[in-house]
Design a protein around this nucleic acid. Structure first.
Lengths: 338, 338
DNA sequence: TAAGTCTGTCGAAGCGCTTCGACACGGTGG
DNA sequence: CCACCGTGTCGAAGCGCTTCGACAGACTTA
């Protein structure tokens, strides 16, 4: 392995000079800088990460806690994770992948060992066990998600309440009056992951203002579950003319089962989804939807956390991204009442 | 931050003794060990990762290169990644997440900086640009996937050729004679990611032996693409009674479109898939399938790479997992010829 | 009883880097 | 002409750990 000392010798300068060339923390004459840089290139020098971390107490690593699901791996999680990794690299940081499995212990471990300079935490519950530790930690942290108490925390998330409101408005504008919400699995609500509840709140409030009738049903992503849910919905509310789906896995079954039951989308029933663009665009009927902006969420989280590492940026900053509804083919004017 | 020295002082021993207690590399009397361990617990000591890496030239980090897809995030990739992370933790290792984006440069960077002790590389192409570097690197590497030349490499993968063969056998056993293969997107074949081609090879060879007629068509995961592909298949081979699908995204559209075109699964046409269990089990018709054992692939890769880090385990070891076909509801006896 | 062997512990060196203070040197201003 | 300043470079200390060799003491073995 090539070391700093070898580069220094090769360039005919001292080790500290090489270090300053690399970090730019002191001014170096153009001539010297070029000599050093050429030596670095010629020798193929890469600074030793451990030594650098030890000396500077900076690892240039950001820990990312992603949820561990044994049931289903939700593509949007992966999209966010990859966006985080990509964004981090452009700022010279690497990502340490932690599974949710370790829970709060992981926070302690990372902080104690100085393995990472900061943490990004996905899939936060409203009252997450990790929050007290993150608040107390002397390392920056950013949540992707929104717990109930945000004091002393940095968060990035889609404004799901606004997303719910936008869906209600869009359907109201098309003349729909009875709307059913096909939600995430019941387990998601029980875990109190905020996003599902916030969407619902947004939907409920705006619906009330607009005079819509709303029926909400949690639902698994399986055909059986969607089928059962649909039957119950039409039993209870035969006048239902529109659906809002917030469940990546349920969108396809929903469209398929509506078609099978003789209801055309969007002629007989309209569907609006809250899901990633990919899912919406590739559905059997391209879905009018509010996108979950995974890329941007990842990018913003990284930028925020790096700002904090570098001493810029404030603690306690909540970024809620404005929802954007994209009109595709699954929602249309409500059928005339007969 | 608590340091080794503080623990040593607290326990009334020297720093090296604490170190040996922690690493177990020299024998320590039970009394001393307990005193040290209790101090460690009392003070909440976590060894500094940078210092440890510097002194021991071991970071206890394994780098994982996952493909960066801008189009679609394939769940199976995430499942493998999470399995790798989980398995690594049980052995005391952390995972550094690298996107494929950096390509071969990432290999150089990791090696040069000693950031990770080893690498696990996913999504390898038959003649991947990273292979020469991995072979030459003085760090262990394990591929999840199978390139065309495996000399000097460690690989873990499903035996896709055998998987193809198993599919052919199963359908032949049910009396099918004309089979269509709905494959991955053409781009996948063009990139020469081996798994798709190997499945096809297995299918072709076994089909030839069993006297089956085989038609292969690459296919995107969209409804439009599957629909077009289906029409062409039935145009060319009206006698087709069975499909083999290897494309996570295409399974749902395939089932939906077959149904729409008036062909019942499995009464009129049979479908066998090569895909993760989740996808197969949750399809609208539960799919008879050969599973892609993501969990096991991740686990095996980690075990193999750690064995190499620790000096056990051989270079050049190719583990091909035997395929297992699970019978569900999508494949049945071929309809009697009319 | 002397020599040899373990066992458990310690001190010190050193891993490769960053960073602080020192300082040489040429240019300015009084 | 001297004191002064800014610029560019260097030497040395030290980050927190691992690991090697040394060694004291208890225990065998001849």
């Amino acid at each position: 392995m090539v070391t700093l000392a070898e580069v220094a010798r090769h360039a005919g300068v001292s080790a500290s000079t090489v270090s300053y060339v690399l970090s730019g923390k002191r001014s170096i004459s153009a001539a010297t800088r070029e000599r050093v840089e050429s030596s670095v290139r010629k020798l193929g020098y890469h600074p030793n990460a451990g030594a650098r971390a030890l000396a500077s107490s900076r690892s240039n690593i950001i820990a990312l806690m992603v949820p561990l699901r044994t049931d289903m791996y939700v593509p949007v999680m992966m999209e966010i994770a990859m966006a985080v990794a990509t964004a981090a690299r452009t700022h010279g940081y690497d990502i340490l992948l932690l599974t949710g499995e370790e829970g709060a212990e992981a926070v302690r471990r990372i902080e104690g060992s100085a393995l990472a300079d900061a943490m990004i935490v996905m899939d936060v519950e409203l009252d997450d066990e990790r929050l007290p530790l993150l608040r107390a930690a002397n390392r920056p942290a950013v949540l992707i998600g929104l717990p109930s108490e945000t004091a002393g925390l940095n968060c990035v998330d889609l404004d799901f309440a606004a997303a719910g409101a936008v869906c209600a408005e869009h359907l109201a504008g098309l003349g729909h009056r009875e709307i059913a919400v096909i939600g995430e699995a019941a387990a998601v609500y029980e875990r109190h992951t905020g996003f599902a509840e916030r969407t619902l709140t947004g939907l409920r409030e705006r619906s009330a203002e607009l005079g819509l009738r709303l029926l909400h049903r949690p639902c698994e992503g399986s055909y059986a579950s969607v089928s059962a849910t649909l039957s119950r919905v039409f039993d209870e509310r035969p006048g239902t003319t529109a659906f809002v789906v917030q469940n990546e896995a349920a969108t396809d079954p929903l469209l398929a089962l509506l078609r099978q039951s003789g209801r055309a989308v969007p002629e007989d029933v309209s569907v609006v989804a809250v899901c990633p663009e990919q899912v919406a665009a590739h559905a059997s009927v391209p879905l009018t939807s509010v996108a979950v902006p995974a890329q941007e969420m990842g990018r913003r989280a990284v930028e925020q956390v790096i700002a904090k590492i570098e001493g810029r940026g404030s603690d306690e900053e909540v970024v809620l991204l404005a929802p954007e509804l994209t009109v595709r083919e699954s929602a249309a004017q409500a059928p005339a009442e007969t």
